[in-house]
């Protein structure tokens, strides 16, 4: 079992550069999990004092919606870490993590992690790189979402077609692309919802009808046209306009 764990750790971006003896030591400290589909790896609001490394299988990150239903925020697969932020901020788990298939995962407690970090500070760089890439991913899409929100607010929905086409070129073997896909999917589903509700509202709009009293109209026009003032202006109109053209 230990060999399998060492091998798994060697494949991780965080620990791959560690010397064998450190990995061996680390392998004795991690807790190994083998879960079946639908089993829960992390529960929302639990104390956050460890990080999980998925080395086989896929998990989903889920939060609850207002009606008690499940909202899937993300999918994570082999080689990815879950809950790494709690190593830093020790806050309770912000979402639950549930196995999508049978999975193998390793848990490393914060205290053990800190000890390894003291002895092998270069690990910190890998972790920062990992967190940075997620931050970059997040800010890219936050910016996109702001931009799109303005366009939606102004009633411009045309951009969605272009953006959806772009999502078709997503490489599903890349975790960031998978995440992007989920984000785009959720965003455009919202857009569809807004559009269909708006269309429904449009059909409820009141039809404007114009009624003109023709007799009254004719009477009023006659009274203006037969007035002295109108006759005078009409007679002078060519001259009034003619003056302009000459100048």
């Amino acid at each position: 079992m230990s060999k399998k764990i060492i091998k798994a750790l060697k494949h991780s971006s965080w620990f791959q550069s560690l010397p064998d003896e450190v990995l061996k030591d680390l392998a004795t400290k991690v807790i190994s999990y083998e879960l079946d589909k639908d089993e829960v790896l992390i529960r929302k609001n639990d104390k956050g004092d460890s990080v999980f490394y998925i080395y086989d299988g896929w998990v989903k990150i889920v939060a609850g919606d207002a009606l008690g239903g499940e909202v899937v925020l993300n999918h994570l697969g082999p080689g990815e870490f879950v809950g790494e932020l709690s190593l830093v901020d020790q806050k309770p788990r912000s979402a639950s993590v549930v196995a999508l298939s049978s999975i193998h995962a390793l848990e490393l407690k914060r205290d053990d992690f800190i000890n390894i970090l003291y002895e092998n500070p270069e690990i910190a760089l890998h972790i920062i790189a990992n967190i940075s890439s997620r931050m970059r991913f997040t800010s890219t899409y936050v910016e996109k979402a702001i931009q799109w929100s303005y366009r939606i607010a102004s009633g411009d929905y045309d951009f969605a077609t272009d953006e959806i086409q772009k999502t078709n070129i997503i490489d599903t073997s890349k975790p960031d692309d998978v995440r992007a896909n989920r984000f785009l999917d959720a965003f455009f589903r919202m857009l569809e919802g807004i559009k269909s509700r708006e269309d429904a509202l449009k059909t409820q709009l009141v039809q404007l009808t114009i009624e003109i009293d023709q007799a009254k109209r004719d009477e009023e026009i006659d009274s203006v046209i037969n007035s002295e003032i109108f006759q005078k202006i009409k007679a002078e109109s060519t001259q009034l306009r003619g003056n302009r053209v000459k100048k």
Partner: peptide, 8 residues
């Protein structure tokens, strides 16, 4: 005045 402004 308005008839005049319309005319010109």
């Amino acid at each position: 005045e308005t008839l005049l402004s319309i005319t010109i």
